[in-house]
Design a binder for these strands. Sequence first.
DNA 1: AACTGTGAAGTTTTTCACAGCC
DNA 2: GGCTGTGAAAAACTTCACAGTT
Lengths: 229, 229
Amino acid sequence: MVNLALRADFANVAGLVFIMSSKSSGDIPDIVIGRLPLYLRSLRRLQNDMQIVTSSHELGERLEISSAQIRKDLSHFGGFGKQGTGYQVGFLIDRLEAVLHVNKEWLVAVVGAGNLGSAISHYRGFQDRGFRIAHLFDISPTKIGVRLGDFVVRPIECMEATIRSEGIKIAMLAVPAENAQTVADQLVAADIKAILNYAPININVPKQVQIQYIDPVAHLQRMTYYLDD
Amino acid sequence: MVNLALRADFANVAGLVFIMSSKSSGDIPDIVIGRLPLYLRSLRRLQNDMQIVTSSHELGERLEISSAQIRKDLSHFGGFGKQGTGYQVGFLIDRLEAVLHVNKEWLVAVVGAGNLGSAISHYRGFQDRGFRIAHLFDISPTKIGVRLGDFVVRPIECMEATIRSEGIKIAMLAVPAENAQTVADQLVAADIKAILNYAPININVPKQVQIQYIDPVAHLQRMTYYLDD
DNA sequence: AACTGTGAAGTTTTTCACAGCC
DNA sequence: GGCTGTGAAAAACTTCACAGTT
């Protein structure tokens, strides 16, 4: 996800030479990073149930991932477990939160105050997992100034200034597909470093900016492949 | 994952006859299936822009996937392109929709009429990509009977009967994590075959039931790994 | 006895590179 | 010139299997 898979023939067609970026945070595969939040989610659940110790086997059963996979993944970051015993739930949570940089609270800007942006702003599930929504922006005069949950919708004109002055590095994009690229460009200009895009369209950002997509329909279509027609 | 045989009806297009057995006999990797909705999404965008023809190169550039990958993926389902020319956008859309079984409209049940269920019910983006929300269920007496968008919230007691009688095979789960497994069990009992789970918890379903997860926080945490602490 | 951490082996996925066609 | 489709090669990823620890 970090490095673009730009290949030589593409570079030639464009008449330019691209320097391939290396993985920005060392040599741990991104696919491993992608599983860590799932481990963390399950561990939180175990902690909720007052469980003190767990094992790669138990986690694997819950997540339907092999225990070897989990041990291998965790071993990239150090020996978090004890042979014969397993992993201390609280300790492993702390370690994973540190690895993922969610042992602090990140401020997040939401752009788009339609149904989706409104639902995101109301959602209580960000708080205790490392994220706090700081602002909600929209371009529509009919929405600006409206109170939605804990937020008053702010005009997109003051987005860059606000994001910069508060040092916000993460944004969620909940605008129509037509506007997603334009808004993403504005976010990049405001020095946003990670974008979670809910619009069903691919957007281009500089490679040092992280981007992830939420597209429920893509998941549904992936499942219908396996359903009887 | 079960592999479904390709339908024979696209064997004869533009006077060309493809031999189907060679392509439909083997298992197609799930990771390939997971990319097809992304191709479809990009192709729809191209069609919107009135573009008639595209290439693996152009698609790859938009999706940041190598052109070789795209050609390889598509080749699992037959020769959809023309050497020297590329792919007809409309034709490729039709073929991918057929492969993914979204060349029909699937009815979907939404369970949970909180903020999230409400937002899902209001979202207009399912309609033109193969899915129509048919019902919205909730357990809370204060919500039952309430009008939300085009739906009146129905009691969860009549969920199984409704799903069965209307032959609904897909559900979206937007209930609190605590209730997700229980509701999933009820959905499985109602003969639901695919569940899109928005609750941040892993749930267990029989292996013939498809399950996919939407967890925005997991995506955010995946990105913060790469951000400066 | 139970469990981790890890090289080695095995498997899957991606990329290369080019024949064949437009 | 451009492009696809595809075997072969390379790279990435997962699992195995076991030494070592509690």
